[in-house]
């Protein structure tokens, strides 16, 4: 088998240690009959090889839209990219032609979706859908591609892969189906994986197994990983750094341990306070009051101000920029320093 035959010319002209992927001041809006929803309002983040970036935020904060824009699978229309760059090995993918872009998809950057049941095609066997990667991208024969599909299923630890290769997605359990999705993403040994809430649709009991598998493969293959989640608990062990999103913006960006011990943004603080904790068993859980904003009418100033316990007049007037408040720590809050100090982070 020719597992390591793939060459990666991009790797040679990449600056060592330079990020694999940089999202730079991205803006995306949805123009619908009801109005314009500003889904992404200046998101920047980056991932290097071997690094895991967790993207955290409530539902609707723009995590998936950012991922779809990176993959080039955004629904356009109604989606419109109104600004920014997405650089892969330093080259802006938004300026590439369709064909060049397509050759990156699946091969260099692969995506794992939340709900494997709807993300896999119901009318084809999993073997067909896995083998398709090799047949289309590498022109492999049906037989060879099938053999590779079985190897992939073994890789993600699906029992009796040989017997199950011709089964259909609905014949697998939720956890096994998500493993198939992971296998599909791994097929061409990509440099970057974007996992959009890969365990959200699963039973709690299998969530950890699937997450461990993903983390293990990422480590072994030294891939970059963007791990999207709305569950802080999931990412604590696997992520290197976390970007917290709110209303289409990054409000805090920090190494994972720092963010946990001393949040520098009121929103992060609220999220942390709402995780169930063993030492506070029996107490009522904290919940951030109010709801995320309507993206067609984002509040002026800081989008979080109607829900923020720290809010002052300036918060309703000026948008707080994302600034460095401590080494490697960024926060977009007029009172970031106070919040950080209060949490003992400086």
């Amino acid at each position: 088998m020719t597992t390591n035959q793939q060459t990666k010319p991009e790797k040679t002209d990449a600056v060592p240690g330079a990020p694999l992927l940089e999202v730079d001041d991205l803006h995306v809006e949805f123009r619908t009959r009801d109005g314009v929803a500003k889904a992404i309002n200046g998101v920047s983040y980056s991932v290097s090889a071997g690094e895991t970036l967790a993207v955290l935020g409530e539902s609707g904060s723009g995590k998936s839209v950012t991922a779809q824009t990176i993959m080039g699978i955004l629904d356009m229309p109604p989606g419109v990219i109104t600004g920014g760059e997405i650089r892969f090995h330093g080259r802006d993918m938004l300026k590439m032609d369709k064909d060049e872009r397509r050759k990156i998809r699946g091969k260099k950057i692969a995506m794992i979706f939340q709900d494997a049941l709807s993300a896999l095609n119901p009318v084809y066997s999993v073997g067909f859908q896995l083998a398709e990667m090799y047949r289309v991208h590498e022109g492999m024969s049906r037989k060879d591609a099938k053999a590779r599909a079985i190897e992939l299923m073994d890789l993600v630890k699906i029992p009796a892969a040989k017997e199950r290769v011709n089964d259909y997605p609905h014949q697998f359990s939720g956890g096994m189906r998500q493993r198939i999705m992971i296998a599909m993403a791994m097929a061409l040994d990509p440099e970057l994986i974007i996992a959009d809430e890969p365990t959200t649709a699963l039973d709690v009991t299998v969530q950890a197994q699937v997450m461990d598998l993903l983390a293990e493969l990422q480590r072994e293959r030294h891939m970059g990983l963007i791990l999207i989640t709305h569950d802080l608990g999931v990412v604590a062990d696997v992520a290197d750094k976390i970007a917290v999103m709110y209303a289409g913006r990054i409000v805090e960006h920090a190494p994972v341990d720092k963010l946990y011990s001393s949040p520098a943004h009121p929103y992060t603080e609220g999220l942390l306070a709402s995780i169930p904790r063993l030492d506070l068993k029996g107490q009522d859980l904290y919940a951030i009051k109010g709801l995320p904003p309507n993206l067609m009418r984002i509040p002026s100033g800081c989008a979080f101000n109607p829900r923020c316990p720290y809010a002052q007049d300036i918060c309703r007037a000026d948008v707080p920029p994302l600034i460095e408040v401590a080494p490697a720590r960024h926060s977009a809050c007029h009172f970031a320093q106070q919040v950080l100090d209060k949490n003992g982070g400086s």
Partner: peptide, 14 residues
């Protein structure tokens, strides 16, 4: 708009 069509695109299929 189905998820599996989006997956097919994300796989880099023509």
């Amino acid at each position: 708009r189905a998820d599996f069509v989006r997956t097919a695109t994300a796989k880099g299929l023509p």
